[in-house]
Design a protein around this nucleic acid. Structure first.
Length: 315
DNA sequence: CGCCGGACCTGCGTGC
DNA sequence: TGCACGCAGGTCCGGC
């Protein structure tokens, strides 16, 4: 389940394979994977063929490749190929000789480059993800639009409603905290709101809350400044740990969203651990078991001892 | 405008 | 064996 660290692993893995290469051909094998491209398949393909990828940029879980149109190559790129991996999306570099994956949805044929695969493939089992072409627009604060190798003060339009993520150098805690306090909802719902802070999904939300010893239903309008700082610091820590674990093979041919899977096996303290002991409590000589609750139509994992349920929680 | 639930998807595991 | 169902969850959209 790609959240920020997994998408960043993909970004770093991808950039050296695609930067500077021209898209020579596009095969859309499943129209559903480009449904967010409102003008359809022909317009999608027409925008891509002949364009050159200048970078790979990420904000939150959104990833995009600014495109330089060779016929009009003055000035910065005006459009980008946007990718969202959804639940199961992968971006893979593959040689022409490699058979199509079972869930191959879109194939980009790139200009030849010595020692590099010819194709960039979008593979997606559950089709929650997708590709589309979008405009690049100025950011509202003038700072670079997202994490990139050569950052531009531009952002893909479809990502402009997404807040900066906690690993973005231009992330503003003050803005986050001000908006958080105005919310009338539960803390986890706020952490998952990509318009407030981006990049956090169900897994890292639970892990950050566990590290911060806060409950998912804690009302946002009662959060003190130091509590908000703590939960954001914890989110940053857990995502950086995952990035370090998944980032060991950035030059791998397979730019795989499961790159951080080793992290999940070893380091999760709450997510998916229903009925198992809370490690922090155990270290303090207390016996407690992680519990699972239904929250927002998905599972939330907490330690009932060190993340006590707030008296007036917002579920 | 903010909050919240449902829809979108497929594969896998479980129970009858 | 086969079928129905629940579960996984990021994002968008409509209702209120």
């Amino acid at each position: 389940m790609p959240e920020l660290p997994e998408v960043e692993v993909v970004r770093r893995g991808l950039v050296n394979w695609v930067r500077g290469r021209t898209i020579n051909g596009v095969d859309v094998l499943d129209e559903r994977s480009i449904r967010r491209h409102a003008l359809g398949r022909e317009d999608f393909t027409g925008n891509l063929v002949g364009a050159t990828v200048t970078d790979v940029v990420r904000r939150g879980k959104f990833l995009w490749m600014p495109l330089q149109d060779d016929a009009d190559s003055y000035g910065p790129p005006a459009v980008a190929l946007m990718a969202h991996l959804g639940m199961s999306g992968q971006l893979l570099m593959q040689d022409d000789s490699v058979p199509d994956e079972k869930h191959l949805k879109v194939r980009l044929r790139l200009s030849a480059r010595e020692g590099m695969p010819e194709q960039l493939r979008f593979v997606d089992q559950r089709i929650f993800g997708g590709l589309f072409v979008t405009s690049l627009v100025p950011t509202d604060d003038g700072a670079p639009g997202g994490l990139a190798e050569s950052p531009l003060p531009l952002i893909a339009e479809e990502a402009s409603h997404i807040a900066r993520d906690p690993l973005d150098p231009a992330f503003s805690f003050e803005l986050f905290y001000r908006r958080l306090r105005k919310r009338r909802t539960g803390l986890k719902r706020a952490l998952l709101d990509q318009g407030l802070v981006s990049g956090i999904g169900n897994i890292y939300a639970d892990e950050a809350l566990w590290r911060a010893k806060l409950h998912f239903a804690r009302p946002t309008d009662t959060l003190r400044r130091n509590e908000a700082e703590t939960v954001l610091d914890c989110a940053r820590e857990v995502m950086q740990d995952a990035l370090a674990a998944g980032g060991t093979s950035f030059d791998s041919l397979y730019v795989n969203v499961n790159g951080a899977s080793g992290y999940f096996e070893r380091s999760l303290n709450a997510y998916g651990r229903e009925g198992q002991p809370c490690g922090r409590c155990a270290a303090a000589g207390i016996t407690s078991a992680i519990r699972r609750d239904q929250f927002m139509n998905r599972s939330s994992y907490t330690c009932p001892v060190c993340q006590p349920k707030p008296r007036r929680g917002r579920w």
